[in-house]
């Protein structure tokens, strides 16, 4: 079970003066249960790529296979694909529209043809999964805090029981605690439910902490693909393409330059503290 992207090309406004080649021969395979980070500067093609994965955009050239089936094949059920590959857009709280939280989250499953009762059951389950207690079921979405609204919006996608959850910058504009809460929750879902997660992020610190695999897009192409440790070794090239490495990566490099015998691959605060502690305790 996987998503396979094969030789995908996509051109916006083909044949006009505004033509942009947004994806260039992209090849990827995302396996079941992976937690994938997707980074790249604005305009690098990452949003275009994720919209291909649930069929919102059709590749100009190339193929996409979901669980082995060609999604551009005749009679392929695209509607089903969209429920299996759930996409949470940036600032999803702007898409909340119902009068109460529960009704809003029911919208997805009801659209998939579930009865009111079944839809409510799925909605409640999804809301609990994102940490929204029963006491909020009847609240107006507009009375909630920014972080809560965003969780409700994520629950709206989870209620459709996707196998793959794609989130486009789910923590933009949230305070640090709100950011940690959302990412911890997503990490929990991935562990407990085995959902595949693709996280689009502009925070190098966040992807370093949470994902197992990091894909870097630049000018419509995959530039790096590996564990965060492997990818952040290329911190200089990352800077050249408008990105960065976590602050601690630079810390470890400077220590090394001063002659310290430390593991320079540390990408999180905990790893850095461990590496530094080990070095400080070392006997000459």
């Amino acid at each position: 079970m996987s998503i396979k992207v094969k030789n995908v090309n996509y051109t916006y406004s083909e044949g006009t003066a505004y033509e942009i080649h947004a994806l260039k021969d992209v090849n990827l395979e995302i396996l079941d249960g992976q937690f994938v980070g997707l980074i790249g500067h604005t305009g690098s093609g990452k949003s275009t790529l994720i919209q291909h994965l649930n069929g919102l955009i059709r590749a100009t050239e190339g193929k996409i296979y979901f669980n082995g089936r060609d999604i551009y094949g005749e009679k392929y059920p695209l509607k089903e694909l969209r429920s299996k590959v759930g996409l949470v857009f940036q600032y999803p709280e702007y898409q909340l529209f119902e009068t109460d939280v529960l009704k809003d989250v029911c919208f997805g499953p009801k659209n998939l043809g579930y009865s009111q009762e079944e839809a409510e059951k799925k909605a409640k389950e999804a809301l609990r999964m994102v940490g929204m207690g029963e006491e909020y079921d009847q609240s107006s979405p507009f009375e909630l805090s920014g972080g809560q609204k965003r969780r409700v919006a994520i629950a709206g996608v989870l209620a459709m029981e996707p196998e793959v959850l794609i989130l486009d910058e789910p923590t933009a504009g949230l305070d640090p605690r709100g950011r940690d809460e959302i990412l911890d929750q997503i990490s929990y879902l991935k562990r407990e439910r085995g959902i595949t997660v693709i996280l689009v992020s502009h925070s190098m610190e966040d992807v370093a902490r949470y994902v197992d695999r990091l894909i870097v897009m630049n000018q419509g192409q995959v530039r790096f693909d590996g564990t965060p440790r492997e990818v952040f070794r290329h911190y200089q090239e990352l800077r050249e393409i408008g990105l960065d490495a976590p602050q601690v990566t630079y810390l470890m490099k400077s220590l090394k330059e001063k002659g310290a015998h430390v593991d320079v691959d540390a990408t999180t605060v905990e790893e850095a503290a461990d590496a530094i502690a080990a070095w400080l305790k070392e006997r000459e």
């Binding site: 305070d175 640090p176 605690r177 602050q247 601690v248 605060v269 850095a272 503290a273 502690a277 400080l280």
Partner: peptide, 19 residues
Amino acid sequence: RLDVPQATLVAYELQKRGF
């Protein structure tokens, strides 16, 4: 609900370990 820069956090973790 706030945070500190990563360098501050690394120093804080090391302080907790007795450095």
